[in-house]
């Protein structure tokens, strides 16, 4: 295998290089943790590999109501940010258990999102946190919710010359991410469950990964949780609803029946954990009512 490695230093140059190449002739390198496997398996055989290394997209920017994470920020940098752990515990939990420390030092948030794996541990929590994605391309900059970016495994709504620049999240939200795997580390989740409570809109967000053709929000289950303080019965109902509504797959990692049971258990536990986190945090006026 041989290819030419290019590393543009501005987003405009990157977009120009992408626009000038036929699809399949160029591959984008962020952390490379998926790309290298694809090259190794000859799934891809690009003539050029475009590295995002020199783009100024490695950052975490906090403001009063949001956190913006540059797309080439290594997961390890997000994990090591104490504020992330305090304010967005679900995001921190999802990141902390991806692969291994070595892998997280390479893998990036944008790369994970762009790969769109149905088993991604990050996508469910980004969905639950209503993350928005900033995309640059030949037509300039656009923003869209994560949900509209994703189509399926290796399929996104990104144009051939578009790149993910950053992801915007709320500055804080009681949230939880729980997974089930054969091995606790260096493994792919059989089930991933993200829950979050956000002050605006429908308060409860539940998203599932690992079980369906693509990660998605479970709005039917969310609808069962009308208040900030659902009863045990309502939590159980939501869990059952999530297990009932998800489209499950059976594969080498787990059977459909096992996944269905696990979804019910983990959704309940994730909501309960989020509730505990809400009561530990300074209660907002809304939550009191």
């Amino acid at each position: 295998m041989s290819f030419q490695l290019v590393h543009p230093s501005t987003p405009a140059e990157a977009v120009r290089l992408l626009s000038g190449s036929a699809t399949g002739d160029i591959a984008v390198l962020s952390g490379g943790t998926d790309l290298l496997l694809d090259l190794d398996n000859a799934r891809l055989a690009p003539k050029r590999v475009l590295s995002l290394r020199k783009l100024p997209w490695r950052y975490l920017r906090w403001s009063a109501d949001s956190l913006v994470i540059g797309s080439t920020t290594p997961l390890r940098a997000v994990e090591n940010d104490g504020e992330v752990r305090r304010r967005l515990p679900g995001l921190w939990e999802a990141i902390r258990d991806v692969g291994s420390p070595a892998l997280r030092s390479r893998a990036t948030l944008g790369g994970n999102l762009g790969r769109g794996s149905p088993a991604s541990d990050l996508i469910p929590i980004l969905l639950a946190l209503d993350a928005r994605v900033r995309v640059v391309g030949p037509g300039g900059v656009r923003e869209l919710p994560v949900d509209l970016l994703l189509q399926g495994s290796r399929r996104t709504t990104l144009g051939p010359a578009e790149l993910i620049e950053s992801v915007t999240l709320p500055a804080s939200a009681p949230s939880t991410y729980l997974w089930q795997r054969v091995q606790p580390v260096n493994d792919i989740s059989q089930v991933g469950v993200a829950t979050a409570f956000v002050p605006q809109g429908p308060h409860w967000r539940i998203a599932l990964g690992g079980v369906q053709p693509r990660a998605r929000r479970m709005s039917e289950a969310e609808g069962v949780l009308p208040s900030a303080r659902p009863s045990h019965f309502e939590v159980e109902l939501a869990a059952q609803e999530a297990a009932r509504r998800a489209e499950f797959v059976s594969d080498k990692r787990a059977t459909e029946s096992y996944r269905r049971r696990l979804v019910a258990v983990l959704v309940r536990r994730a909501i309960q954990t989020t509730l505990e986190r809400m009561s530990k945090a300074t209660p907002s006026r809304k939550a009191k009512r």
Binding site: V182, Q183, P184, V185, N186, D187, K252
Partner: peptide
Amino acid sequence: LDYKIIMPHQ
């Protein structure tokens, strides 16, 4: 990766 020997954690 796919043949699961147990990890140090286990």
